[in-house]
Design a protein around this nucleic acid. Sequence first.
DNA 1: CTAACAACTGAACATATATTCATATATTCA
DNA 2: TGAATATATGAATATATGTTCAGTTGTTAG
Lengths: 123, 123
Amino acid sequence: MPNKKDQQEPVCAVYCVHDQIVKEAKEQMLIPVQAIRLAETFKILGDPNRVQLINILAGREICVCDIAVILGMSTSAVSHQLRLLRNLKLVKYRKEGKMVYYTLDDHHIVNLFEEGLEHIKHT
Amino acid sequence: MPNKKDQQEPVCAVYCVHDQIVKEAKEQMLIPVQAIRLAETFKILGDPNRVQLINILAGREICVCDIAVILGMSTSAVSHQLRLLRNLKLVKYRKEGKMVYYTLDDHHIVNLFEEGLEHIKHT
DNA sequence: CTAACAACTGAACATATATTCATATATTCA
DNA sequence: TGAATATATGAATATATGTTCAGTTGTTAG
């Protein structure tokens, strides 16, 4: 533990700070917009219903009504969840008459999902 | 679109259901405990401060006080966040005197983090 | 045109999560 | 032992999130 004279801010009340480590870690920090976008992406996956929803979409194109039946949710609730996923560009959709068919927008999201699944299976 | 007679539940008010797709998707659903654990793992990564925290821990072992300085948070707030990560076995710690040094528990979490980072960089 | 229906949306409520503050625990050193 | 300090925790408040309900939009069929 460095003493007072090693500190960059010797008046600071916190004396346990390791200046070199703090300096390096600060330089390697993500820029705020990256941290926020990454967190948003993870957060949207942080709900059991949406995890099941992504899992369904990973296998097939499917309409809102079918999703509602599978998840045992109202179509309204499903639609709200799909809007969240749409806003983050995680899903895309195709209109066919009255129906709207959803798919995953991007293969990265499948990779991320699979990686997470492997993680919890090995713990 | 199947007609009424194709339905497993012909009295159901929803006629747009694709029985075969619903059946297949239901069979491929995650078991609830898996969906919940996976969602918990993603959710814990779904916060910009924790994203930065994981990023810091991905590079080095570091004490609570240094993390607080780097993130500009109180040590109390950092400690609460670390407890969340500990509860999900995402980080582990080592005591040395008064200090507690944290590291990531598991290389899977680094993979997951890196995969997410790649995802947002390519969008 | 109207009726029926799939999906979407805004707003209100209920629940969950995060932050803060005060205090507790554990360790070191005098 | 007692003072200082690094971290952890419980509880209360503030904030965010999810669900439901009511109503809207857009499409098809008659």
